[in-house]
Design a protein around this nucleic acid. Structure first.
Lengths: 109, 109
DNA sequence: AAAATACATCGTAATATTGCGATATAATAA
DNA sequence: TTATTATATCGCAATATTACGATGTATTTT
């Protein structure tokens, strides 16, 4: 045991959970906020910005890249990262749909 | 090592990450969707609904309760769970704010 | 009071995540 | 070609998560 039983759930449920997982670390939130703020893609700066080791920062970047929400392009000796607008929009819409107006004015029980 | 270095990040960043973490498992997404759908709070049903062991289901419920997004009330021999509308709204607003319209039409790099 | 029912919690095993130093890789600069 | 620079990956240790059986607890039935 220890591994998530993804087969018990719908693809949509697994997808939302995977998206949430990508956001489930403050360093990754900080990276995304930094990328949104700077718009242009900085990269080595993130190591200074976050205060985490280079290896750790690179690992978080990899996770965000695997999730699709950011993309990196080789720019000479360094790599330029930026938000993937298409996937960003997908995240936004999926979370919006999940939290969409529900009849929640009354507390049951 | 192994533990998240929360002190490196802002309270807001840690908060968003914590919220995302609560949603970062398909079983918890399934529980929330079920609660939203049924509105009225069912509970023992969740074990059948999810296909996970009773202990595991209870553990996921506990995490959602700790995150504040659901609440449980003792109802005779069983416990009635439901969405906490106030916290649900907070989640919704925080994610909305995070994903709010950003100038993302062009891909940099 | 004793049994039954519904959950919670404990203990434990398997696996995943976080973090970092060390090293590899790849591109530019000297 | 040989540094230098920037990033990625490897290997490892610490910790967290997921899952479940077993057991505890509290309420209702019998």
């Amino acid at each position: 045991m220890g591994a998530t039983k993804t087969d018990l759930f719908t693809q949509q449920q697994n997808e939302i959970a995977a998206m949430a997982k990508a956001l489930a670390h403050p360093a990754r939130i900080a990276i995304l906020q930094y990328l949104v703020k700077k718009n242009a893609c900085v990269c080595g700066d993130l190591v200074d910005e976050l205060g985490l080791a280079q290896a750790t920062t690179s690992q978080h970047l990899k996770e965000l890249k695997t999730a699709g929400i950011i993309q990196g392009t080789i720019e000479g000796v360094s790599v330029c990262y930026c938000i993937n607008p298409k996937v960003w929009k997908q995240y936004k819409e999926l979370f919006n749909a999940f939290f969409k107006e529900v009849d929640l004015q009354q507390t049951c029980c």
